[in-house]
Design a protein around this nucleic acid. Sequence first.
DNA 1: ATAACAGTTGAGCAACTATTCAACTGTTAT
DNA 2: ATAACAGTTGAATAGTTGCTCAACTGTTAT
Lengths: 122, 122
Amino acid sequence: MLSEIEVCEKECTHSEIIEKVKNEMPSESVICDVAELFKVFGDSTRTKILTALFESEMCVCDIGKLLSMSKSAISHQLRVLRQSKLVKARKSGKEVFYSLSDNHVKTIFKMAIDHVVGNDCD
Amino acid sequence: MLSEIEVCEKECTHSEIIEKVKNEMPSESVICDVAELFKVFGDSTRTKILTALFESEMCVCDIGKLLSMSKSAISHQLRVLRQSKLVKARKSGKEVFYSLSDNHVKTIFKMAIDHVVGNDCD
DNA sequence: ATAACAGTTGAGCAACTATTCAACTGTTAT
DNA sequence: ATAACAGTTGAATAGTTGCTCAACTGTTAT
């Protein structure tokens, strides 16, 4: 009845635009990496940890205190941040101090904060 | 030696650092809004839609073609982007054209792309 | 009026994820 | 050696989320 259509046909298709956009877009892998990065940023616990580390290196226990969360929960999230190479660890005795591995992140967050705070009106 | 501090117990507590960081961190609500924004960015379908819209406004059908996805799936994600005020819609006949509502986003993405592409070595 | 199409929407399902819990490692002090 | 603590880890659970499917709205053309 309706459709053995696989593609193309008579649906609205502005092919020139599709082609143009396809050519100018970043590669699939870059886009996915970007999405992965944002996914790591997209959890309020990790966001809090990162913004805390903007100010000072901290040990797991203190981050837990600061955010009123268990050491385990913090440790799990620090693991995610470590795997994404966003933070690095320094061991000192029993304690492990975490800090940003890159201030690139700080800049990205600054822009995001500006955005949500609404320095741009429209 | 560590006992002047009223804070809780005997766990490792660098109270000065915790206080300092607490005072300098953005407010809870700002941090959560930032996390929400990043959560929206943190899906490859939405990331693809946004980077496509960086180049040109597009209708739902064309975005579906470009990404080889159903109109329904695209529409669902556009709804999320609309609710976050990241894209705006313009209706023209049967078609609905979407575009960025703000080039702030473009700047944030540019930095994220730079980050994942690794313009910063470590 | 009817058909065809662009797009939206809600329900449902499958996959994912953040936290808790409990058990563990390693370091420091007694 | 033993105890206490900082931190890590794996499993389990509860909540979230992206896509599909089917039904729907609204517009255009016949």
